[in-house]
Computed example of a mutant assay.
Amino acid sequence: STDSPIAAPTPTPRASSAPASRSACASAAVAHADRTDAMLAFTGDKRFLVSDSGDAFLMYQVKGASWIVLGDPVGPSEAWSELLWAIRARADAAQGRLLLYQIGLRIVPIAIEMGLKLVKYGEEATVELDGFTLETPEMRSVRKASRVAERAGAQFAVVPAAEMPAIMAELHAISDWWLADKNHAEKSFSVGRFEPGYMAKFDCAVVRIEGRIVAFANVWGTPNRQELSVDLMRHSEDMPQGGMDFLFTRLMLWGHDSGYRNFSLGMAPLSGIEARRLSPTWSKVAAFLFRHGERFYGFAGLRAYKEKFRPNWTPRYIASPGGTSLLRGLIDLQALVSR
């Protein structure tokens, strides 16, 4: 590598897109991740660029002329610059445009060094689990909603991944009803989808009423216990009032007892004041991102909902060459997510 801000390191990382290679990269995500969104490596719809040392990689996909990188690289941060310069070199060689999607603050200096323009499109909500409790005045609304569900007979459990086949048909029926009720189609790339092989890789939080599952969320957890989160969250027609608050709070308490440090509630869109300051180009695509660009699309996308859990908010960015390249890249991203 080099210290020069205008010269890229020699791109030595290797690309992986074959199924066997994808599986190996996904397994590496589990071994090295400190963020739960690394689990998106298991969805089977991405390519990977692996560091020369083999202990770090980034996830990406090519759509049209756009080379779209999802999130921060996974693995030791010392390899991140190498990986990002390498994907830049590959995109340039293919006369493509590079788009870094959902990147965090640690990537910002590298993106600036690469000459990319940054746009803040939202913030991630993270709850510290050390000392997490419902018994505070600030948690009154969540506590009240959870107790409504409890009085309706709601019971919480985390089903281990090894036991998922026994409940898969029940979960599938709930998922199908939820998608139809919300008029949603399954998404891809930046979110998971209900596919039995994918679901069976993770533990699953469930809410039961009289033995029947009425809500579920597949659980993402990093091996170092740094972060816990969920991917798909779906419920049946007869989920009791307060059921999702009940699921979240019980999972956070379970995470605390299991030694996890943080719980990620995912992204929230820009607030109204910030949105009004956006450039015209960005405004055209903001609505799509706010609907589909985060894991919690459907019913928990509002910042106000996540604010109930008193999280810390951290900015997330999109980086691109700027101008019309941003708009064209986001159009390709929409096609990738919605396919």
Rank of each mutant, 00 (worst) to 15 (best):
W178N: 12
W178K: 14
W178A: 10
W178D: 13
L179T: 08
A180M: 06
D181E: 10
D181W: 04
D181C: 02
K182P: 04
N183R: 11
N183C: 07
N183M: 07
N183K: 10
H184N: 15
H184A: 15
H184C: 14
H184Y: 15
E186K: 14
E186F: 10
E186Q: 14
E186N: 12
E186R: 14
K187I: 03
K187L: 11
S188C: 12
S188Y: 14
F189A: 02
S190E: 12
G192P: 04
G192S: 08
G192M: 04
G192H: 07
R193A: 04
R193G: 01
R193T: 02
R193W: 11
F194A: 01
F194G: 00
F194L: 08
E195D: 10
E195V: 06
G197N: 13
G197P: 08
Y198P: 00
Y198T: 03
M199S: 07
M199L: 13
M199F: 14
M199D: 06
A200V: 05
A200L: 08
K201G: 04
F202L: 05
F202I: 05
F202K: 05
D203E: 08
D203Y: 03
C204G: 05
C204E: 03
C204V: 09
C204R: 07
V207S: 02
V207G: 01
R208K: 12
I209N: 09
I209L: 11
I209D: 05
I209G: 05
E210P: 06
E210C: 10
G211Y: 09
G211A: 05
R212Q: 14
R212N: 14
R212G: 10
I213G: 00
V214Y: 05
V214D: 04
V214L: 06
A215E: 12
A215G: 07
A215P: 06
F216D: 00
A217D: 07
A217S: 13
A217M: 08
N218G: 04
N218C: 04
V219Q: 09
V219T: 12
W220L: 06
W220G: 00
W220E: 04
G221K: 09
T222M: 00
T222S: 00
P223H: 10
P223S: 11
N224Q: 07
R225H: 13
Q226V: 09
Q226K: 15
Q226F: 11
Q226R: 15
Q226G: 13
E227F: 09
E227V: 07
L228M: 05
L228C: 00
